[in-house]
């Protein structure tokens, strides 16, 4: 079933991705086509099959908390689009 325009808009809002009209229409068609292909998985019986999120048998990997120098603040902040002192500067999150 093809995605609706509203569904595509909703997805874009969830991931905060701005889309223009053309992209919206292109994605509506292409995503519908790919999602259609995904239906093939319904042919497989996976009752009682546990999910695999990760192939390694690792759980709760811990290591000792050994103090070590952090990255130099200046080098880290050098990539900041906007800074104020040692803080990243952003526009007001809560507006009136």
């Amino acid at each position: 079933m093809p995605l609706s325009r509203e569904e595509v808009q909703h997805l874009a809002l969830l991931v905060r991705l701005g889309l223009n009209e053309e992209e919206l229409e292109t994605f509506r068609n292409q995503l519908s086509q790919v999602l259609d292909h995904f239906r093939i998985l319904q042919e497989l019986d996976t009752t009682d099959m546990p999910p695999t999120a990760h192939v390694l048998p690792l759980t709760n990997v811990m290591r000792d908390d050994v103090p070590a120098p952090s990255l130099p603040v200046e080098e880290v902040m050098a990539n900041a689009p906007q800074r104020e002192g040692n803080y990243f500067r952003v526009r007001a999150v809560l507006e009136e």
């Binding site: 595509v8 997805l11 874009a12 969830l14 991931v15 991705l17 889309l19 992209e23 994605f27 292409q30 995503l31 790919v34 999602l35 995904f38 998985l41 319904q42 497989l44 996976t46 099959m49 546990p50 999910p51 695999t52 999120a53």
Partner: peptide, 30 residues
Amino acid sequence: VKRRIMLGTYALSAGYYDAYYLKALKVRTL
């Protein structure tokens, strides 16, 4: 990149998670 972000968000979103993402993880086991 946008296409894949959209696709992944769809597969993880409420109402589709079991049919897509969880199903894919089970197929992964197979």
